[in-house]
Design a protein around this nucleic acid. Structure first.
Lengths: 199, 199
DNA sequence: TAAATTAGCGAACAGTTGTACGCTGAATAT
DNA sequence: ATATTCAGCGTACAACTGTTCGCTAATTTA
C-alpha cells in the first residue's frame, strides 16, 4: 500500500472515530483530541500529522454531514418521483435517515446552536443549501413564486429538523406521533403559502 | 444580616455568575465549577455548600429561564390587549427579550440540544409550557379547535425560537429581516390552520 | 545504492479539572 | 456565658487536557 493511501486511511479513521464518539451525551465540543486519538488508535501527537487543529477536524465533519444531507435529499426526490405525497415521503425519508445515522445528524443539531461561531455558520450554510434546493423544487412543481417558496421551505426545513431532534430522544411509538404531527404542520404551511401566493 | 440571608445571597451570586459566563462561546456544559466559583468570588470547595453538583446548578438555571419566559409571555399579552397584530407584537416582544437577556435565552437554546438528557427534558418542559399557553390563547381568541391550535402553536413557537437563535448572531439590519420573515411564516401557519379548522 | 522525506511514537511540560479533608471564625442556640 | 452549627477556605491529589521536542523506521526520491 502507498504511503499516501495509508495516510488517507488513517485520516478517515480519525474522522470515523470522531463521529463514533458523538453519542447521546457527547458533542464535538466536549470530546478531546486525546479521546479521538485513542479511538483512532494513534498517539495524540500523531493527530497533528492530519489536522492542524481540532477545529479543522470539526469543520471536516460538518462538511461530511452536509454531504450526507444532500444525498438524503436526492434519495427523497427519487422516491417522490415514483409517486406519493411529497410531505409524507420527505418526512419519512428524513426520519429514516437520522435514525440510521444518528451521529451525523447529532453533529449538525448540536453545532447548530453550539459554542463556536464558525461551526454555527458552517452548519447554517449546509441547512441553507438544503432549504434552497427545497425552494427550487417547490417553485418548480407546485407553482409557487420564489419569494414565498423560500419562506415556505425555510419554515418547513426548520420544523423537520426540530422533529428530528425530538425523534432522537423518543421511543418508537412517539416517533410515529412526531412524524404525523410535523406532517400536519407542514400541510398548514403549504396551504397558507398557497393562499398568500394566489393574492 | 442574617446567616440565612447571607447564604441565599451567595447562592444568588453563584447563579448570576453562571449566567454571566454563558457568553457567545461558552455553554453551561463547557463552564467548570471552578470558573463559576471564581466569578462568584468563593472558593471552589464552597460551591458544595449550595449545590450538591454542577448539574443541580444547571437545572436551577433552566428553572429561572423558564420563569423569565413566562413573564415574557405575560408582558406580550398585556401589549396585545392594548391593540395591535398578535403576531407582530409577539415576535417583537420576543426578540426584544432575547436581545436584552441574551444569556437566559442562550441557556435554553444550547441545552435544548445539549449533551445532557436531563437538561434537554427540562428545557423542553419549559417550552412546552409556553406552547400550551399560546394554544389556550389561540383557541380562546381566534376560535380554533384545540387539537389544531396545539399543532399551530407548537409550530409557531419553534419558528420563533429558531428566529431568536439567528437573531443572536445577526447585526441590527439582519434582525429586522429575520423578524419580518418569521412574521410571514407565522401568517402562513395561521392561515393554514384556519383553513383546516373550517373543514 | 544513498539520501531525503515523513507518519507515527514516547516522554515531558504546564495547565486545568472535580472533589475529599480538616480547619476557622462568626452567627446562632442553649 | 457556653456550646453548637456551618459558610467558607486552603491544601492536596489524581486525572485529564493540548502541545513541544526529538527520535525511529519505513517509504520515496535521486
Amino acid at each position: 500500500m502507498n504511503r499516501q493511501q495509508q495516510k488517507l486511511q488513517t485520516r478517515q479513521r480519525i474522522i470515523n472515530s470522531a463521529f463514533s464518539l458523538l453519542d447521546d451525551n457527547k458533542s464535538f465540543t466536549t470530546i478531546s483530541l486525546r479521546e479521538v486519538a485513542r479511538e483512532a488508535k494513534i498517539a495524540p501527537t500523531s493527530f497533528y500529522r492530519h489536522f492542524s487543529d481540532i477545529n479543522e477536524l470539526g469543520l471536516t465533519l460538518v462538511d461530511e454531514s452536509g454531504l450526507a444531507l444532500r444525498q438524503l435529499m436526492r434519495q427523497a426526490r427519487q422516491r417522490i418521483a415514483k409517486g406519493g405525497s411529497i410531505i409524507d415521503i420527505s418526512v419519512d425519508t428524513f426520519l429514516e435517515f437520522i435514525l440510521s445515522n444518528p451521529n451525523v445528524f447529532r453533529l449538525l443539531l448540536r453545532e447548530h446552536t453550539g459554542t463556536s461561531a464558525a461551526f454555527r455558520a458552517a452548519v447554517m450554510r449546509e441547512i441553507q443549501h438544503f432549504t434552497e434546493e427545497l425552494a427550487d423544487y417547490i417553485t418548480d412543481k407546485l407553482d409557487i413564486p420564489m419569494p414565498i417558496a423560500l419562506l415556505q421551505s425555510d419554515a418547513m426545513v426548520k420544523l423537520v429538523f426540530n422533529a428530528g431532534a425530538e425523534a432522537m430522544d423518543a421511543d418508537k411509538n412517539d416517533i410515529q406521533k412526531i412524524a404525523s404531527r410535523v406532517k400536519s404542520q407542514l400541510r398548514f404551511i403549504q396551504k397558507g403559502a398557497e393562499v398568500y401566493a394566489s393574492r
